[in-house]
Each structure stands twice: as C-alpha cells, then as structure tokens.
Design a binder for these strands. Structure first.
Length: 489
RNA sequence: GGUCGGUUGGCCGAGUGGCUAGGCAUCGGUCUGCAAAACCGGGUACGGCGGUUCGAAUCCGCCACCGACCUCCA
C-alpha cells in the first residue's frame, strides 16, 4: 500500500480512511444505467469516477470485485398513474420492439460509449431481469419479517413500521416526521398504507408487457429491490463500497438500506460514495430543458449546442479536472479548454520520450509523485494531481529547451509518473494515430517533398501541401529540426 | 416549505488560518520565408455586512444569490 486512502462517506459526511473488510479483497457496487435510451453525458460521470476508483484500488494492490448493474426492468414512468407503464415497456411500444430489443439496443449503446471513454469493464454486470427470483425471495422475506404487506397482488415496504424499529432516512438526513409535515398527501386512490411506502412487487396491468409470474400476481419487481439483491448476492451481506450519482441518495439508496436492514438486521454498505451531477451552461441536464446531450452527439459534435466534436478523452480529462463531488458545468468554452490542456499534457509526454539525460539534475522532480499520491489519497483529488502533472510538463519543456537539466534516473521517474497517473489511473490515452502504416508513409513522403521545396524557397509548393493537408484535418507542425503532424479533425 | 451543497480572477476549476494551485483565454517574448504549432514569462481573485484572531478568501453569525434532492433520473 502506498499510504492511506481517504474517501468521503456520504453516511457519515466525513472523509474516512478506507479499510476493506477483508483485505486484499474489495467489493464495490455501482448503480449502472436504466437502458431505455441512448447513453448520455450524465452516465459518463459515475462511470469515469468509479472507473478511477477501481483503477486506483487495484493500483494500491487490492483485488477488487467491481459490480455494476444494468437496470433492464424500467422503473415506473409514473407511480400515480395507474397504467403503471414502465420506461422500457413504453419505449418498446413506441418503437414496436420487444422490450428485450430495447434493452439490448441501449445496453450496446452504453457499452460502446463506455469503451470509448476507456472505462474498464466491471467484474460482473448483473441485470435485474436475471434476478427476478431473488427479488421475489427478498420481498417474501420482508413480508415474513413483518416489514412488507400485500395488497391486490402488489407488495409494499412498510416505511412507518421500519422507521419505528430502525431509522428511515439516515443516509439522506431525512426525518420521516418532517417529511410527513412537509408533503401534501397525494390525491386519489392508493393501495399503500403509508404515503412513503414503496413497491417491492407491482402487479402488472393487462397491457403491461414486462411481467413475471409470482405468488402474488403476474407483475414485476419494484424500484429498489434489484440493487439490494444483486449487491449482496455477489459481494456478500456486508461489502465495502456502494457508489452512484448523488441523485440516487434519496429515495433509491435510502430504500436499499431499509430493505437490507429489515431483512438482515444491518446495512450491507460500509462506504457510500456519490458523484455530483453534470450541468450544461449552468443548468441541470434534462430533456425538458432541451439541453440533453448523448455521448455520441458529444463525440461527433452533432448536437445543436455544440460548436465542435469533443473526443472521449477530452470528456474524460475534463471530468478529472474537477473533483468528483463538485457539480461540473459543461460548456463549449470549458470543453475546448480541456481539450487543449489534454493536448499539452500528451505532447509533453512525447517530448519526454526524446529527452536527453544530463549528468545531474537542476530541476526538482522528486516530490511530484508523492504530491500526486497525496492528492489521490485525499478523496481522489484528481484536479490537484493533474496540477502536479502540469508542473512536470513545464520542467520537461524547460529541459527540452536546454534551460534545465535532468539526470537519466530523474527522466525515468518522470516517465514512471506519467505512466502511472496519466495512463494507468486517469485512463488517458493519446489520440488516434494513423490508421495504418501506409498512410504514415505517404504523409512522410509528402512532408519530405515539402521540406525540399522549402529548401528551394518554393513557398507556393510548400504552402499548398500544408494547406491541403489542413483541409483534410491534418495539421503540419514545423519544428526546428524537421516537422511533425497531427490529426486534428 | 424541508434537507444538503455552493458563491474564487475573462472562462473552467483546486485549496489552505499567514507561504504562486492548475488548465484555457489575454498580454509580452523566443522560434519562423509567412502562418500555424511548440516553448518561456507577466498581470488580474476569493458574493455582501459584521465578528473571532497578531493575521481570514480560509473559522463563526446574519444577508443576498445559485444549485441538487424532496417524483423517475447518473
């Protein structure tokens, strides 16, 4: 272990030293997407955040089981609406598809986007539909323990009862009594005993497509059950880390705690870790605001709010430049800044590879690595770690200019620093190289001819080559000794 | 209304009771046939009003504003 990692635990509201239950093993469960539409910007934040945590834990030497679910039973679109249609069913009806076709389509979209963002695949990616039986079993267990009741073929969790025995709201800081005082009673029929009770099993209306048989009714599992079931099934009754977006704290994670505590006497989770939300031009991203951007639109620049495309690595770097518990505001200006910053970082790494060692060092690069680790250990403070990397960038460039010197040993340790932080932990990789060697060869030929033209002072020829390549999205970069090129579009 | 979080320089975004965050932009310079690229360097900051303190942007109080959650949501 390098040193102690501190993580902010939502339930204690403090940074706590991370100590796994059974080292060297670590169990981490993260709430994944409901697959009823294209993967969007909001999906990227937790994916990148917990990918970072996953990578860091492994780097520290832990053996991590990373479980991230796919919710493929659509949560109810509108609980009050008695039609009880869920998101996936609705989408299936609208697009005239099987629900599982909808699920497959958007799951593929999610996976593709995640791969582009260079997030490592989880160890297990369980799906709600694959755990219907276990969910029924948990519902049954909660009934037998007196924490749940059946009405008209549906099963509800009795929040009042639970609150009288334990305490409902410990994660989100809510008090049931206050909630009662501050919310109007919902109008109309409700088969629930208490207004805060939530469904464990829901009877399907006749036209509801996704349904499974059960002792209570043909229906489908409730909102929060799948995560309780799948996390403990694969990670045990008590596991180390449960992650997800902050918007899931209430009611989703609160209900998970209630279900598990009611069924097994204690919460299964030791550290609750939540990432903050993404905003766009200062506004929450929501369909109703018209600022809803899918990851594919971002990567291709096809959304009307985007002035250009932003590469997956730019998105990733942009997210890492902010702390995961801060809201992160997307704008063209901010993304462009991130993209240029990333380019600078990666360019310096190429410079580093060709640096000439000196007998001694005049620049101090020791300490940078420790500062990076310190930052990571302080609740994954990636922006501070990145600032250290830019310090290294400045030194690399100064050495390259002959204004500072680095010994061979120091150069090696800077290389190691970049390898560990830029690549292994931050998961950043250099942009696409040329698809194949032939193109590289052709380019080299063109650039050689341009150099010769320049030597003969035939500027019209050399400029023409440069301009035509530029139109093709290839930027020619003249250097003191020869020239370099980069695919920029 | 309730709960929680935030307000940092042109933009994004860290952080600490006294010591330059960093990136982008801008300005100056190096380089260059020109341009771009690349590199170096400089400046501008901590919402308002009180308080604690030798000293606060950092702690406390009040006010203003913004956001998240309270319904599905990453």
């Amino acid at each position: 272990m390098k040193s102690a990692l501190y993580l902010y635990n939502t339930i204690s509201r403090k940074k706590e030293m991370f100590e796994p239950l059974a080292p060297p093993f670590v169990g981490m469960y993260v709430c994944g997407p409901t697959v009823y539409s294209e993967a969007h910007l909001g999906h990227a934040r937790p994916a990148v955040t917990f990918d970072l945590l996953y990578r860091y834990l492994m780097h520290l030497g832990y053996q991590v089981r990373y479980v991230r679910n796919i919710t493929d039973v659509g949560h109810l679109e509108n609980e009050v609406d008695d039609s009880g249609e869920d998101k996936i069913s609705r989408k299936a009806r609208q697009e005239n598809l099987e629900p599982m076709e909808v699920v497959q389509k958007y799951m593929n979209s999610y996976h593709t986007a995640m791969e582009k963002l260079n997030t490592l695949p989880p160890s297990i990616e369980p799906r709600a539909t694959g755990h219907i039986i276990e969910q029924q079993q948990l519902a049954e267990r909660l009934i037998s323990k007196g924490y749940a009741y059946e009405v008209n073929g549906s099963v509800y969790f009795d929040v009042e009862k639970y609150d009288s025995m334990h305490s409902y709201g410990i994660l989100s800081g809510r008090v049931l009594e206050d909630m009662r005082a501050n919310s109007r009673a919902l109008e109309g029929q409700d088969e629930k005993r208490g207004q805060f009770d939530f469904a464990l099993w829901k009877k399907a209306s006749p036209d509801h497509i996704m349904r499974w048989p059960s002792k209570w009714s043909d229906g489908f599992p409730g909102w929060h059950l799948e995560c309780s079931v799948m996390s403990t099934k694969y990670l045990g009754d008590t596991f180390d880390i449960h992650g997800g977006g902050m918007d899931l704290i209430f009611p989703h994670h609160e209900c998970e705690i209630a279900q598990s505590t009611a069924s097994q006497g204690h919460s299964p989770v030791r550290y609750w870790v939540h990432n903050n939300m993404v905003t766009i031009n200062g506004q929450k991203m929501a369909r109703s605001f018209g600022n809803f951007i899918t990851l594919e639109e971002l990567f291709t620049g096809s959304h009307k709010m985007l002035v250009q495309a932003y590469s997956p690595m730019t998105i990733r770097f942009f997210m890492l430049q902010a702390h995961y518990r801060s809201t992160l505001d997307f704008s063209n200006e901010a993304l462009l800044a991130a993209s240029l910053g990333l380019q600078k970082l990666l360019t310096a790494e190429r410079t580093l590879a060709s640096l000439k060692p000196s007998d001694e060092s005049t620049a101090d690069i020791r300490g940078l690595s420790k500062k990076c680790y310190d930052a990571m250990n302080d609740d994954l403070n990636t922006p501070v770690a990145i600032a250290q990397l830019f310090d290294a960038v400045r030194i690399i460039n100064l050495v390259n200019d002959g204004k500072e010197k680095l010994s061979a040993a120091d150069i090696t340790s800077v290389k190691e620093l970049f390898k560990v932080f830029v690549h292994d932990l931050f998961g950043l990789k250099a942009g696409e190289s040329v698809g194949n060697d032939k193109l590289a060869g052709v380019l080299q030929l063109l650039l050689d001819m341009r150099q010769e033209a320049k030597a003969r002072q035939e500027w019209s020829v050399s400029d023409r080559i440069r301009d035509r390549l530029s139109e093709l999205g290839i930027t020619v970069k003249d250097r003191k000794d020869g020239c370099d090129w980069e695919i920029t579009a």
